[in-house]
Design a protein around this nucleic acid. Structure first.
Ligand SMILES: [Mn+2]
Ligand SMILES: [Mn+2]
Ligand SMILES: [Zn+2]
Ligand SMILES: [Zn+2]
Lengths: 142, 142
DNA sequence: ATACGGAATTAGAACTATTCTAAATAAAAT
DNA sequence: ATTTTATTTAGAATAGTTCTAATTCCGTAT
């Protein structure tokens, strides 16, 4: 309960505003769709989901909204090989496991491990971002 | 000297053969170009380089050769965001640092760190491949 | 309320890295 | 030598994303 009082329960418009994003209805709908089903949908999948609430939205707008959300760090863009970019509303630092069946799972990454990775670099490197991707088979849980 | 007696000095045809790759002249030329200049060229860049030795080679063949080399683990394909795939002939396990200027650098990754990463996953996950990408600024060294 | 101006949205065209197709060559097997 | 199989090739096709130019939306000023 304490959990659900953080970002999900706050009015979305407010969250967007606080992150410097003008809260248009399209942006709210796109962002909401990412918060609700926390798999890692592609732009096309977001488009399909969002159409149900906002039937007149265009694919270009979905791309625009996703870009804005990514640029303002409300959403992460996830790439694996040359597959379509996937989007992730989990803001905690985490890695991604790409299942051979096509699922993408979040893998928690403690600060210690991130620091270990950063330490691989000479100190005069300025790291902006670290990305860790696993690929393999995950057990089916359904 | 002992170093150079490993893979670079061996006849390329032999190396390819040992990895299950039929050594056509195109494959040899593509592979050689990756061994010689160890930056991380795209398929287009490989095409441009290889044309000087083999002026009649086609881009499709460059893609074919690169695929064969990757599939037989003589070369690694490296992806970052949605940029064109880059190719890397460094077979030691390593991460990649993507400079804001566009350079891609190899970062050594000791086994310990790799094991740390693998340990982030539940034991019933079967990991085939781990990928680590850094993004940021590297000092200019020229 | 109305008008203005910048921002956002939209449909569709354009772009580009890559893959596919089908024909031509080359190499291997018989 | 003939047949089979693999590889190469040029060009067409594909697909995810970005761009273009017109329209709509919204906050602000009048
Ligand atoms: Mn894969
Ligand atoms: Mn970048
Ligand atoms: Zn995620
Ligand atoms: Zn490399």
């Amino acid at each position: 309960m304490a959990e659900s009082d953080t970002i999900d329960s706050k009015p979305l418009a407010k969250v967007l505003n606080e992150h410097g994003v003008r809260p248009t209805s399209q942006r709210e709908t796109v962002y909401e769709s990412l918060l609700q089903k926390r798999d890692h949908p592609t732009a096309d999948e977001v488009f399909a989901r969002v159409r149900e609430k906002a039937p007149t939205i265009s694919l270009a707008t979905v791309y625009n909204c996703l870009d804005v959300l990514v640029q303002n760090k409300l959403v992460r863009a996830v790439n694996f090989e040359r597959a379509p970019t996937q989007y992730c509303a989990n803001l905690a630092p985490h890695a991604h496991f790409h299942d051979e069946a096509g699922r993408t799972l979040d893998i928690e990454m403690p600060t210690g491990v991130i620091d270990q990775l950063r330490d691989l670099l000479p100190s005069d490197f300025d790291v902006k971002h670290i990305e860790v991707n696993f690929h393999g088979r995950a057990p089916h849980n359904d």
